[in-house]
Simulated scan of single mutants.
Amino acid sequence: MTWTRWAVALSGWVALAVTQLPETSPLRRAIVVLFLLLCPGLAATLLWGREVFVRGAGPARLLEGAVLVVGGSLSLTALAAEALFLSNAFTLTRALLVLAALSSLLVLASALRGRLHHEHRALASED
């Protein structure tokens, strides 16, 4: 896995650990907000929208990727929060736990998909 995948996979767990800081801590707020705005969507984009982040892409492609990441993050956050609200189990810690686990699973799935894709290409080139 690349360092980007490791960072995304671990970011949710860092945000979850930061919830132990006092509620008024600016560091706690900044880390949690950054995680909620970026990481779940980035994990999903690494799995399903990998062509968005191609090296040498122009500024329009990077802007498209940024909008996709933020939109995906907000959507996944809203879905997790709604599910927890409907089950009368919503807390910040539970929401972060669900999103951290989801982000980690999406990153691991993208790594496996990439590995399988490379193995398939290697087998196809041998024929």
Rank of each mutant, 00 (worst) to 15 (best):
R121L: 15
R29W: 12
S25F: 02
M1W: 07
L68T: 13
A95V: 03
W13G: 02
L46A: 11
P40T: 10
S125Y: 11
H120F: 13
L27D: 02
L68F: 12
E64Q: 14
R113T: 12
T77S: 07
A81T: 13
A30Y: 07
L116S: 11
V107G: 02
L86S: 12
L96M: 05
G56A: 05
A9L: 08
R94V: 01
A101M: 09
V69L: 13
L108V: 13
R29A: 15
H118P: 00
L97T: 15
A43R: 02
L27K: 01
S87C: 09
G12C: 04
L34N: 10
A100Y: 04
A109C: 05
R94N: 11
G71R: 05
L21A: 12
T91S: 14
A60W: 10
T4L: 15
A111V: 14
R115L: 12
A109P: 00
L27Y: 05
S103N: 02
A95Y: 00
T93F: 06
S103W: 04
V67F: 14
T4P: 09
L37M: 12
R29F: 14
A101E: 01
A124H: 10
S25T: 06
G49Y: 08
A89C: 08
S110K: 04
F90M: 14
H120W: 14
P59Q: 09
L62D: 04
E23P: 12
L21Q: 04
I31H: 01
W6P: 00
V32D: 01
T19Q: 08
L116K: 09
L96A: 02
L105V: 12
L123G: 11
